[in-house]
Amino acid sequence: MLKSAKRFALTAALALAAGPALGGALGLGSEARPEEVTAWDIDVRPDGQGLPEGGGTVEQGEMLFQERCTACHGEFGEGAGRWPVLAGGYDTLDSDNPVKTIGSYWPHLSTVYDYIRRAMPFGDAQSLTADETYALTAYLLYLNEIVAEDFELTKENFTSIELSNESGFIPDDRPDTPGLSEREPCMTDCKPEVVIRMRARVLDVTPDTEDTSAVTSD
């Protein structure tokens, strides 16, 4: 309420009500036609909202993957260079080298469809048909040993697929370190000695810049 009160003058000048349900106050913009919304509305949610009609098989997906995806992701989704690894990595999340793939990490299959549909192949986004996207998604499930090689993914069976790490996520519970109310920060004689434990120069991975040399003292 306080924030509303502060903004009262502005709000009044704009002749706007505080409630979110009142639309069209300024008469700006134009109504989107149904075909415009359909063409741009490409997102897919975990509950299946947004999935288009259609389907595709693992076999179809494999052919597409070899043709359009392996240059970056490798033949088996293992990733080339620094491009993302798509398959495997099970039981690594609590290790020193976690491998976060669709199978090991992603919580929802809808994310795979949504992302391929909007962003893949890299540099030729939104070029795949709905069926092709189903097929690629099916193949990625197969690479992650979630479905058999004769599987067909469709709009109808899509939400029945569960990924293993769906329960691996927790809400944000920060702040997770002591604040002022728990501990007044120390100002004087806070530790007996200070030792350097690690130096960036040992790794020597910093890009060269011309302005770090020629240090002088006077």
């Binding site: 975990p46 609590d94 976690p98 994310t111 992302y115 691996g168 927790i170 809400p171 944000d172």
Partner: peptide
């Protein structure tokens, strides 16, 4: 929506293998 950028990326993997999500602030 649980998009790629808020599941595969921009989630915070903890030592026990669980991940925080929607870590916005």
């Amino acid at each position: 929506w649980h998009t790629r950028e808020e599941t595969s990326k921009y989630t915070d993997l903890l030592e026990n293998g669980k991940s925080r999500r929607f870590t916005w602030a």
